[in-house]
């Protein structure tokens, strides 16, 4: 059974328009991969398809995680396997507090894995502890999920969810966008604190800055639905200077 995430020649379209045109990628446990690339290249699409968002048609290829064919699974089943997506645009749910939401999620995943529900007090302790690490004030835990949160607060809230759910693979879709310098550092530290031999990250970002904090093992460039370049941390630095012009030609 092959561990980690394996994406093989993935083709995806939306309403007959092909968005991903054969993406191949493997993230081993414990590794951090970064995905960069121009706007509209298909980064979020890849993240969504891996996590099972409806609305996409997979026309070819496969995605497996820890040996499971995830494309056949419901989003919640993938979540229970340990797949986590930090949304580029976090969603609001009026009336459902942050705490309730996370408690429900934690217990749903535990149930799916055949584990007992978490003791409510233990859960609260865990939640507070993680919130503190992200400098999220306690009152934010009582507020409805993301409602009225600032852009930066929403992103940090995604990180809180990641910290509490402790996934095996976390996909961070532009979690750094819209963060001020301090928040960026806090988020990065949050991620680094989570780094573990059995946990991997797929970090989607436009900026080298984040990768200064979260040093990736591998950097990919995704442009026009394809991985057009793969390299080490230096690739990101080089892109910072040259931009994506070099890959523009591949669009055709």
């Amino acid at each position: 059974m092959s561990k980690g995430l394996i994406v093989t020649d993935l083709h995806v379209s939306i309403e007959d328009k092909e968005i991903l045109k054969g993406v191949t990628l493997a993230v081993e446990p414990g590794k951090v991969h970064a995905i960069m690339g121009p706007n509209g290249g298909g980064k979020s699409t890849l993240a969504h398809v891996i996590s099972g968002r409806p609305g996409y048609t997979v026309t070819g290829g496969s995605v497996s995680f820890d040996g499971h064919d995830v494309l056949e699974m419901e989003p919640e089943e993938r979540a229970a396997l340990g797949l986590f997506l930090a949304f580029q645009y976090p969603v609001e749910i009026p009336g459902v507090t942050n705490t309730t939401f996370l408690k429900t999620a934690v217990n749903a995943q535990r149930k799916a894995r055949g584990e007992a529900e978490m003791d409510p007090m233990a859960f609260l302790r865990l939640l507070r502890e993680k919130a503190k690490l992200l400098y999220l004030p306690d009152d934010m835990l009582k507020r409805p999920l993301n409602v009225g949160f600032s852009g930066g607060e929403k992103k940090r809230n995604e990180m809180l969810q990641m910290a509490v759910l402790a996934p095996k693979l976390a996909i961070l879709d532009e979690t750094d966008s819209g963060l001020d310098i301090d928040a960026l550092r806090i988020v990065a530290e949050g991620v680094n604190a989570q780094r573990a031999p059995d946990r991997s990250f797929l970090v989607i970002t436009h900026y080298q800055r984040l990768l200064d904090y979260i040093v990736p093992d591998v950097v990919h460039v995704l442009a026009d639905g394809r991985i057009v370049e793969t390299g080490g941390p230096d690739l990101a630095k080089q892109l910072e200077k040259t931009g994506y012009a070099e890959y523009a030609g591949t669009a055709a």
Binding site: G52, E76, A79, F101, A108, Q161
Partner: peptide
């Protein structure tokens, strides 16, 4: 989708 991504059934 958010809820399901976090592990909740529909």
């Amino acid at each position: 989708f958010l809820c399901r991504q976090r592990g909740l059934s529909p």
